[in-house]
């Protein structure tokens, strides 16, 4: 299930399909859902770097998503910056935030990191809500849409957004893939397995974990940057919340940690389900969608800890040792 040399065909076919599909099926709602699948997929790949490869469960990714989104929105509204520049600024701020939080709490073992990510996300939201003049407080920010404007990345229909989101997804996937096959990837695998042994081969635990957290933050903030560009609207509750952070984690864990396709599979399964339940159940029973995910999450944790991707994987041919690093 990787870009292995012997069968690059399937990924290429999928990619071709992804490129051609929106040209054939012009269904606005469906396209909207697929775009969501893509950018939530991006967040899940972002999560996998720190939560999967580094084995440090983050429940605060919403803050990086918000950092990306607010950087684009404020950059545009305050300084008339194009979202492209706004996104780059967002990436830098998100990485600095990850560096700051990471260098404090990644030193500690166990659940402290998870806790601190929850707390940090709360802090960022409290700040976003408090500094109303800049952030719009609970009302959030609206980016006025005045028709097609390439500089502002405003388009008349969703097709360009579709390709931007697809591009971001590929970037996220490729980054994840490269990380898993890189020296950093091996170091993270070592740390995940045994911290003492990792030290005995000269691995600086802090450095590697912080690096992973920064990469994770950067990827996630890109998704946020895209989100606000696409939706023209942002508020603290829908981005920088525990719910958002949990959703990101869910997608990655359900799909399968530390696997090339896992986060995408997770997004493919969860986002449509979320849309369906939102469309048909939300008005009747808010929370129904989350209830379903929670049950699936508990079941996956207990019975398929490697996620749904592993179910496909074990159905396929026996794994090569070579793939193990990425798979485990």
């Amino acid at each position: 299930m990787t870009f292995s040399k012997n069968k690059p065909l399937i990924p290429l076919l999928l990619l071709a399909l992804a490129i051609v599909m929106p040209l054939i099926f012009k269904h606005p709602y469906l396209m909207r859902v697929v775009i969501m699948i893509f950018y939530f997929g991006v967040t899940a790949y972002g999560w996998d770097v720190i939560g999967g490869y580094a084995g440090q469960v983050s429940v605060g990714q919403g803050m990086f998503f918000a950092v990306g989104a607010y950087s684009v929105a404020l950059g545009y509204l305050v300084s008339n910056l194009t979202p492209v520049v706004g996104a780059l600024i967002g990436v830098i701020i998100a990485m600095l935030l990850a560096l700051g939080i990471g260098s404090v709490v990644l030193r500690l073992r166990g659940p402290y990191f998870t806790l601190s990510t929850i707390a940090a996300c709360e802090v960022v939201r409290i700040l976003l809500l408090h500094f109303k003049e800049a952030t719009g407080g609970p009302e959030g920010l609206v980016i006025p849409y005045n028709g097609y404007n390439l500089y502002a990345l405003h388009f008349a229909n969703d097709l360009p957004y579709y390709y931007i989101a697809l591009g971001l997804l590929l970037v996220a996937m490729y980054t994840c893939y490269r990380v898993s096959r890189s020296k950093l990837g091996y170091q993270l695998a070592a740390i995940r397995n045994d911290e003492d042994a990792a030290k005995s081969v000269g691995i600086n635990l802090m450095k590697s974990k912080v690096k992973a957290f920064m990469i994770s933050a950067a990827i996630t903030s890109l998704a946020g940057a895209f989100y606000v560009t696409y939706d023209h609207y942002i508020d603290p509750f829908s981005t920088c919340s525990n719910e958002m952070s949990v959703k990101i984690l869910l997608i990655a864990v359900l799909g399968g940690r530390r696997s090339l396709w896992g986060p995408l599979i997770g997004s493919l399964l969860i986002i449509p389900l979320m849309e369906l339940t939102n469309a048909y159940l939300a008005s009747v029973r808010p929370g129904a969608a989350m209830l379903i995910y929670a049950m699936v999450l508990v079941a996956v944790v207990l019975y398929a800890p490697d996620g749904i991707a592993s179910v496909f994987k074990s159905a396929g041919k026996e794994q090569k040792g070579d793939d193990k690093l990425a798979a485990n």
């Binding site: 091996y186 695998a189 995940r192 397995n193 045994d194 081969v201 040792g321 193990k324 690093l325 485990n328």
Partner: peptide, 14 residues
């Protein structure tokens, strides 16, 4: 303290 979830070769690579 070997890296249990990794192959022998990956252990050495690290």
């Amino acid at each position: 303290k070997s890296f249990k979830d990794l192959t022998a070769l990956d252990n050495i690579i690290i």
